[in-house]
Amino acid sequence: MEALKQELKESLVEQLNLEDITPAEIADDDMLFGDGLGLDSIDALELIVMLDKTYGIKLTDPKQGRAIFESINTMSAYIAEHRTK
């Protein structure tokens, strides 16, 4: 699980071009959207593509993303349970 969390932090920084943040600066329970990391609805769509491409998880409704992408903790838990690759 720790490896997955680290992997997620790295891909978050890379895929979303978070130039001013390093993976180490993201805590497992940091809020990714809103007041936390400040991600928005377009980032959510980018993350949905990442779930599909890297972990084989397909979301059909962007609203599903809200709960999944709340923090690194929620994301890693969801991926661990549903991944197909």
């Binding site: 895929q15 377009i42 769509l45 980018e46 593509v49 599909d52 491409k53």
Partner: peptide, 10 residues
């Protein structure tokens, strides 16, 4: 037509 992210389209 797979794995397309919206940013370049926007």
């Amino acid at each position: 037509e797979q794995y397309l992210t919206p940013t370049p389209f926007i």
